[in-house]
Write a protein that binds this DNA or RNA. Structure first.
Lengths: 222, 222
DNA sequence: GTCAAGAATCTGTGATCTCAGAATTGGACA
DNA sequence: TGTCCAATTCTGAGATCACAGATTCTTGAC
């Protein structure tokens, strides 16, 4: 993961709690429909209720959790409509972001991308979905963060935060086969400094997810 | 303003505080570079520190305020880079959103749009920048919210939240002349159910803002 | 008159406490 | 054995308290 910009509010308890929860969401360690409790998380993370509450308030603002009526805070259940909404938002932002970023990816970053891609391959061979999702996140954001556009990156991060729990369900249901080719194509496009090709690779990556809901409707989350 | 989907966490103190602060941001009643204090706001809004803290945590997650290192929470100062970043994000989302929404705008909504447009005209005549910004917000989101895409709307709202303070500065500096024609064009496009025309009108609206930073660099906020 | 050092104040952060309401569980009755 | 109701438990929301650090103001010396 290794947050690249390193939150300015470092050393704060709330920040580390938020980072931990964020990691869980992006790597799909929380299931859609699950309910979280401030007290439970506080106990688990050995902090008081307060930092957890503020972290959850942030996550609620980012759409990762919902304050369901009263007395219940849940990670939103998976819906075909919401899944498609998210994917179409990703389509609107990420291909363009990647295409614009390609000019700013230097040799060092490309090397790191290759290393992460290798780790992705390992995770896929081991069938470790959590590791795959963590590395996949790292791969994409190594590309996007080459751009100095904090607002755009923040928007995309919001999407991934909401997307993580869904992806885990999807991977658990359909497996992780043939997921690596898009990364190969992306790496080639970056090597060639080919923005349009990278755009197509990222778009294809997103469309892969889209195709999954074409054949299956989602009804529940847990 | 009148939040259309009416936050599910209604009746909560934190929600009303967040709504109030949100309103201030969108209508430009806070200046870039200003610092806010939880205690001050709590005193002003006649609530305890707690709801303010959580509301500010949400606003921080939405990028409307920054937790500057320690002991200071500020609304981000205006930068040419950030201004452009925001505008380009708006360009990526809002024209498409409007074009897609045009099919879902029924007669009732169009009537409300016309009414709001009239109020915009009044505000412009009176030179009431705050009222103009509030009605302008309402106008745009009456269009976007015709879509049932909560995630997309949430993203755009985040952008407006960050954008509000900047726009107020821009309007204060350059006035609000000739701002109404885009809305006329938009209304015509909606009447004709012409998605591409509405897309062009919204894009032109955003580009208007973009043109302002072409000739002027921003250095400070206050 | 100027500058620096120290004190007082103000700020965010975290902990603890209380309360109201929802959910769950238990038992009792049919 | 199944169903329904009540009581207990558990949850989030809000208020209050305590603390550390930064800022600012004041005061003293040079």
């Amino acid at each position: 993961m290794s947050a690249e910009p390193s939150d300015p509010a470092d050393g704060l308890l709330r920040a580390s709690v938020h980072e931990e929860l964020r990691r869980r969401f992006v790597t799909g360690r929380v299931m859609p429909g699950t309910s979280l409790s401030t007290r439970g998380l506080a106990l688990e993370l050995c902090v008081s209720q307060m930092p957890v509450r503020e972290a959850l308030a942030r996550l609620a603002a980012e759409g990762a959790v919902e304050i369901r009526s009263k007395r219940r805070i849940v990670v939103p259940p998976m819906t075909a409509a919401r899944f498609q909404d998210l994917l179409r938002c990703r389509e609107m932002l990420e291909p363009d972001a990647a295409a614009s970023a390609v000019r700013h990816i230097d040799a060092a970053r490309l090397k790191r991308l290759r290393a992460v891609d290798d780790e992705i391959g390992e995770a896929l061979r081991d069938g470790d979905v959590g590791a795959y999702m963590a590395r996949n996140y790292e791969f994409h954001f190594l590309i996007y963060r080459a751009l100095s556009r904090p607002t755009l990156i923040q928007l995309i991060e919001t999407l991934w935060l909401q997307f993580g729990p869904y992806m885990r369900v999807v991977y658990g249901r359909f497996g992780t086969s043939r997921l690596d080719d898009q990364h190969e194509r992306a790496l080639a496009a970056i090597r060639d400094r080919n923005g349009p090709a990278l755009r197509r690779a990222v778009l294809a990556d997103i469309r892969d997810g889209m195709s999954l809901i074409a054949k299956n409707g989602f009804e529940n989350g847990a």
